[in-house]
Write a protein that binds this DNA or RNA. Structure first.
Length: 276
DNA sequence: CATGATCCCTGACTGC
DNA sequence: TGCAGTCAGGGATCAT
């Protein structure tokens, strides 16, 4: 799944091609995503100017003045910008190319999403009040997300720290991969009860989360196999992980065997030598 | 309210 | 080679 770094990278990749451009047309090939794509988008959007491209959690927000187009990539979604100066333009849509946003300059923003867990939604009004966004916790890379905050928010919680990190009311954008990686770097076992972790360990955890996410963004977003960079080039090489997807293999620091368990129907990976 | 389970979906992979 | 079965995963939503 595109995690926060991929979404951030995608947003940065598409923004220069979209910002200030007028929408000319909308093509919906398959509206059946996580929620139906609003049928009236082809009527509503043409003529509107995309003013800014923003990211909140894993949502990409295209501010069109009269409303905001909300895009989510689910776990297999990708966006590409097709440019008229490229060879073979206009490129005929592939399987799973569900949605096109066509701009006045002929460029096309194309959503590809095999598993269709993604979303394309339209919101009029204060975007912060949208049901999907209004209950979200802080962005992990802002100063609002710090050890004091995590410590305070987790007092009385009985849930495991791994699941707490993936709870979007606590903090957004930390998916399974980075929750596992950050806990490893912080030396915290994913099963530890969040409410029992002290401020010192949270300092280390917050540092690990920010470090891991920044590194991935710098690398252009670590990727699942079907992530495609917004300029159309194939995705980056899979990032080297400390624990994620490495069950049965040796820990890179202590050579213990990496263990895999299920927490809340999700796989967790950890080293019992390095994480307590 | 906090927590855990279920569901949406298709492609990659495994075993026969 | 092909087929059936399993797994993966974001996150809303339902059940406890």
């Amino acid at each position: 799944m595109p995690e926060l770094p991929e979404v951030e990278t995608t947003g940065r990749g598409i923004a220069p091609h979209l910002t200030g451009q007028v929408i000319a047309n909308v093509i919906i090939r398959n509206s059946k995503l996580r929620w139906p794509i609003p049928e009236n988008l082809p009527v509503l959007l043409p003529g509107l100017t995309i003013q800014t491209v923003m990211r909140r959690a894993k949502y990409l927000l295209l501010d069109c003045g009269k409303g905001v187009l909300i895009l989510h990539l689910g776990m297999s979604g990708s966006l590409r910008v097709l440019l008229p100066e490229l060879m073979q333009f206009p490129e005929s849509p592939r399987k799973h190319d569900h949605f096109d946003l066509i701009l006045n300059n002929q460029a096309v923003l194309r959503l590809h999403d095999p598993r269709r867990f993604g979303a394309v939604l339209w919101h009029v009004g204060n975007i912060a009040q949208h049901p999907l966004l209004m209950n979200l916790g802080p962005e992990p890379l802002t100063a609002d997300f710090n050890a004091q905050y995590l410590f305070r928010e987790t007092r009385g919680l009985r849930a495991c720290i791994k699941q707490t990190l993936m709870n979007s009311r606590v903090v957004v954008g930390i998916g399974n991969i980075y929750a596992n990686e950050a806990l490893y770097l912080a030396g915290i076992n994913p099963k530890v009860i969040a409410g029992r972790i002290g401020i010192g360990r949270y300092e280390k955890l917050v540092q690990a989360i920010k470090h891991t996410l920044r590194l991935a963004i710098e690398a252009g977003g670590s990727s699942l196999r079907d992530f495609v960079h917004s300029d159309g080039t194939r995705g980056y090489f899979q990032q080297q992980y400390w624990v994620y997807g490495r069950s049965g293999k040796g820990c890179k620091q202590c050579s213990n065997v990496i263990k895999q368990i299920k927490q809340g129907q999700r796989s967790s990976f950890y080293c019992s030598g390095c994480q307590h």
